[in-house]
């Protein structure tokens, strides 16, 4: 019974957090929702006897990765909230819904539809012991990692090194002039894109004005206010860059 309760609470936390990540307008909020999801996941790991992973989940994911996200968000400007009312790519939202629903449904069918959804045999060497304690789990994981998967483990070490070097190279501020870029092309496209956004915004504004004329609902008023605010920030950042 406790198990069910724990699962239910965790599932709720995870799903709410996940929806929060994709729904929050401000990326800072998204990151905070992500932490919520990761914590819920850590609890689920514990209930699945994966104690080491639960700890790693908290330390590495919540502690390091999300902090890195937040750091970059702060670096680039906290106020870059996104206008979720506008979708420049026609049909993207619809396709996204279809993809989400189809993925979920198909995975449900695959995972639960048949008895042998899980195939394969447990390894002889890596079998989970009967007595699962914290120490045992870590020890088992370590033993497996440093015997059967030692080459993969070393490869991940190299991968991380390369990633660090790559990040330094990419993010390093170059001395002197910037590398040449197809500036004209970029500018033209940016302008075209901005024009598309503006047109769409104007259209929405017109629609909103119409509906506002029909019945002065408060939600549309809010949307208008958001829109104005969004375009205002865009102009500001443009000026700063120039």
């Amino acid at each position: 019974m406790v198990e069910i309760a724990v699962f239910a609470v965790c599932a709720a936390i995870i799903l709410v957090g996940a929806v929060g990540v994709i729904a929050a307008r401000n990326p800072v909020h998204s990151a905070l929702f992500l932490i919520q999801t990761l914590f819920g996941m850590a609890v689920v790991f514990i209930s699945l006897e994966a104690h080491f992973l639960a700890a790693v989940q908290v330390v590495v994911y919540a502690g390091a990765i999300v902090i890195l996200f937040l750091f970059v968000i702060m670096l680039l400007g906290v106020d870059q909230s996104e206008n979720l009312n506008i979708e420049p790519i026609v049909g993207q939202r619809f396709i996204a819904g279809v993809v989400g629903v189809a993925t979920f449904a198909l995975m449900l069918v695959t995972l639960t539809g048949s008895e042998d959804a899980i195939t394969g045999q447990p390894q002889a060497t890596g079998a989970l012991g009967d007595e699962l304690t914290d120490a045992n789990n870590v020890r088992q994981l370590a033993e497996t990692l440093f015997t059967d998967y030692v080459f993969a483990f070393e490869a991940t070490a190299i991968l991380l090194t390369i990633a660090v070097v790559g990040a330094v190279v990419l993010a390093k501020r170059t001395q002197g002039e910037m590398l040449p870029t197809p500036r004209n092309t970029l500018e033209i496209r940016e302008e075209a894109y901005q024009a598309r956004i503006d047109a769409r915004a104007a259209q929405l504004e017109a629609n909103a004005a119409e509906s506002a004329a029909a019945d002065s609902a408060s939600s549309t008023g809010e949307a208008d206010a958001d829109l104005v605010e969004a375009s205002g920030t865009g102009d500001e950042t443009d000026g700063g860059d120039a």
Binding site: I89, Q92, I95, A96, V99, A102, T103, L106, M107, V109, T110, G113
Partner: peptide, 18 residues
């Protein structure tokens, strides 16, 4: 758009397996 392509491809694959 490319992500949509990847997603649709993945769905098609899973659908094929099912």
């Amino acid at each position: 758009t490319y992500a949509v392509g990847v997603a649709l491809g993945a769905i098609a694959l899973i659908g094929w397996f099912v």
